[in-house]
Design a binder for these strands. Structure first.
Lengths: 241, 241
DNA sequence: TACGATTATATGTCTAGACATATAAGTCAA
DNA sequence: TTGACTTATATGTCTAGACATATAATCGTA
């Protein structure tokens, strides 16, 4: 089931931060929701105010919450900042935009890792892998196609998971905590297969995100996402100085 | 000249953070450099350890420095994480990759803002603007073409700056502190003009980064960067949990 | 009713301590 | 020289307070 991300013995402020983060990410506390006041959290966790303040300050720095004097702290709406880097879950991304989410499993294969699979996952030896192809749509319009490889030696449960209804990204997010990820963003032009899946013209531009995820030096999954390049845009907003 | 970013009366920990950040960004403290120990900063600023700790913690959270127990705090090398989001300066990006940087001014125009200019800068009224087109190359190979608009009402000095040798991005970075920026990443296919500038085929995929920069709600510049989509890749690496 | 002054309150910053913990560096023996 | 053990030290976390400050809410007045 869902595990706490911090491994052994999370410090108190990290636990507080993780608790709040979880409620925000699961949607239990939606955008606009007022999270408990510092003094309430102090009472709940039985610690000093500086400790909860540190947790809340970090959440504010990560733009997950907004803090307003006298008013309290509020869950922010879908993070710009997250858009490029932190969004591991397209379903969350789309629903956060207030659009209806659609999902369709195109293909799923369980196989012994081929040389290409091992190369893609960046491992020398790998037993079995699951290869998944699926499509995400927003308001019935194709939003992205996903081509994913999961290393079963890292995530054995994925062999039996039912990806026909739940997108693999969401499943992984709730079953496997990750510690490191890398995104590579590039552009390609659509080939026949891509064009058909995204309902765009052959030769149309596509934005590509390749994402690799590890947990403590162990590869979990490699995924390639293709977005229509002229309609979809990844926005990242952040603060300087 | 270069101003402190925080406006009126920065709090102490912010001043400490800004001081260190400045030295890192200017290169005075290069990657690997050990920044002063907490107790040294405590002595220098005459404050408690918690105050410098807060400043350093935030810098660590922003991945500008790395903190190692017993060893100290060190300037990190050009952030992966920065690659997509924070890099305002292509020259720095290229030299950080260990490649030789080349720059070429293609065009520069000073004009009263047109409707299109105002729209692009997101302002209602604007006096004059400078429009700059230039090309960046790495190891003599076209790396990106830049198409930039600078609002002269925000940055009057830009009217007389010499962009024939210094790229506008670098110039701005050293002359105008920004407080907010937004990146939009998309993909297009190269038209004739782009194809020629980047030395690629017409119809080849291009990665597009549109970047808008503000200083306290005041637009500074809007820039569009075009990268060859199949050769250049933007990498963002980061930690979870 | 509308507006201006006052007040209560939640966050923002800071202090002077404390103990925990990872680890670089030094020490010593095999 | 190498490996195991010890020690010193910088960071990591935490406390129980303090005062500052922005502002939502209230109250009073025109």
């Amino acid at each position: 089931m869902s595990l706490v991300t911090d491994a052994d013995k999370p410090t108190l402020y990290k636990r507080i931060r993780a608790d709040i983060e979880k409620r925000i990410l699961t949607g239990e506390w939606p955008p606009g929701h007022r999270i408990p006041f510092e003094h309430e959290l102090v009472a709940r966790y039985g610690c000093s105010r500086m400790t909860v303040n540190k947790a809340l300050s970090e959440l504010a720095q990560a733009d997950l919450i907004e803090r307003r004097r006298r008013a309290g702290s509020f869950v922010r709406r879908p993070q710009h900042q997250s858009a490029v880097l932190k969004i591991a879950d397209i379903r969350a991304e789309i629903t956060a935009l207030g659009r209806s989410y659609g999902y369709e499993l195109i293909g799923r294969k369980l196989r012994a890792a081929t040389a290409a699979d091992r190369d893609r996952l960046g491992v020398k030896k790998a037993g079995k892998v699951v290869a998944i192809t699926c499509r995400h749509s927003a308001d019935k319009v194709p939003f992205a196609v996903e081509d994913r490889l999961i290393d079963l030696s890292s995530v054995p449960d994925a062999a039996t998971a039912d990806f026909s209804r739940e997108p693999p990204g969401s499943w992984l997010l709730h079953h496997v905590p990750w510690t490191e990820a890398e995104h590579t963003i590039s552009a390609i032009v659509a080939d026949d297969r891509t064009a058909e899946a995204l309902d765009i013209a052959v030769g149309a531009p596509c934005l590509v995100i390749d994402r690799y995820t590890w947990r403590s030096a162990r590869t979990i999954t490699a995924v390639r996402l293709l977005y229509p390049g002229d309609s979809h845009r990844l926005v990242a907003r952040f603060k300087g100085g």
